[in-house]
Design a binder for these strands. Structure first.
Lengths: 218, 218
DNA sequence: TGAAGTGATACCCTCTTGA
DNA sequence: TCAAGAGGGTATCACTTCA
């Protein structure tokens, strides 16, 4: 199914072919590449994986020719009552900017609650959750993805902060396991992974994301 | 544009919701999850990244209910003339099985030649190449992805083979740097990455892929 | 008004699948 | 065999909020 594959590329793909031909690509070796704006090539050193060498983030500036249509996310207006997340239901007039859906409190709550239970959903669980929240599976998937990222960022920040703090002389209470990568990662392990956290134990959440308040209130 | 996001999930998403509700998801904690086939959880130990903890590959067995539409890839049957791999323009009849495009020799040759120069293409290079080969950008992108994987597999296999060989007593010539991940990975670095291989030097390719013959001939 | 939050998009990667 | 499908990751972007 072309979905992913075709939709974005097929239409407008044959576009940004300004300066070079295949021959020029093949000859790129001579000019050391560099690809125009050799400025922003940040290989974001982070992954050890020698294979995980991202390209220079596609030098976004390179081609403004790229359509970037973004005809609104598939989001159907979620809960039009309640606090109604502004839904970009109708195709926003062509050429519109990407519209950001605002999830309702109820949706966020359910998502957070679910996330609190499991960092990863099976596709059927996702389908079910999406259905019940009036969201698309993709939205749920992306939400979980972003949420995991957020958590990761929070934990990273916390670790860094703790280290800086401890460097300042204060003997901080950074639990040993907190820096143990395997256990740290465990915080994102699917529930089905045993050992890492007992059923009864709450997830480790140092950050004070407002979302966690959702579970404190009433 | 929804392309990627919507296409596959939106339509059929609201489906596989058989056994559980949100409540059940939230209560999953009780049953220790395990999520049916707790067998195949292969966390493919390879990434150090504590965050890179893949889920149990979504327990694919769990839901055969998933539509899995796969309205066939954008590719139409290849090779009418030349060997023409045919561009995937027209939507193939709905509900078709996944069809595998067979690229023409010319296309393969160009792709391989380009791959030999750069492991990664910028989007404009990709667009250009795709255009000239009558392929979609996505096809070129996927081809490069699969090609990188293939190379990786080959290199891995070679290393293993060499090690086994050396264990057999024979002092094999496995260049020291061959096992140096950074340099090994360098073989996949985009050309723009300096140092790893001088312009004039050929890529390190121990495998005897037929493709590499393309550059030896003539 | 600038910073932070976050939905969405584009690529990349790994593993699978099916013709 | 290998093009694709599916899902996970990271980096960015753009739009909102909020102090």
């Amino acid at each position: 199914m072309p979905g992913d594959m075709t939709s974005k590329q097929d239409g407008p793909s044959r576009s940004a072919c300004f300066t070079f031909t295949i021959d020029s690509i093949l000859n790129l070796q001579q000019r050391r590449s560099g690809d125009s704006d050799g400025s922003k090539r940040d290989f974001q050193a982070g992954h050890e994986e020698p294979w995980d060498v991202r390209r220079e983030r596609d030098s976004r500036s390179e081609e403004t020719a790229k359509p970037r249509v973004s005809s609104s996310p598939a989001a159907r207006s979620p809960g039009s009552e309640e606090e109604a997340a502004v839904a970009p239901d109708s195709k926003p007039a062509a050429g519109k900017k990407k519209t950001r859906t605002i999830f309702s409190k109820r949706q966020i709550f359910q998502l957070e609650a679910t996330f609190d239970m499991k960092r990863y959903l099976s596709s059927s669980e996702r389908a079910c959750l999406a259905s019940s929240l009036q969201l698309t599976e993709t939205q749920v998937k992306i939400w979980f993805q972003n949420r995991r990222n957020k958590l990761k960022r929070q934990l990273t920040t916390d670790v860094v902060a703790a280290e800086q703090f401890s460097e300042a002389g204060k003997p901080v209470q950074v639990p040993g396991f907190y820096k143990d990568s395997s256990l740290l990662g465990g915080c994102l392990f699917p529930v089905s992974l045993p050992v890492l956290y007992p059923n009864s134990a709450p997830y480790i959440c140092f950050s004070s994301s407002k979302y966690f308040n959702l579970f404190d209130t009433d």
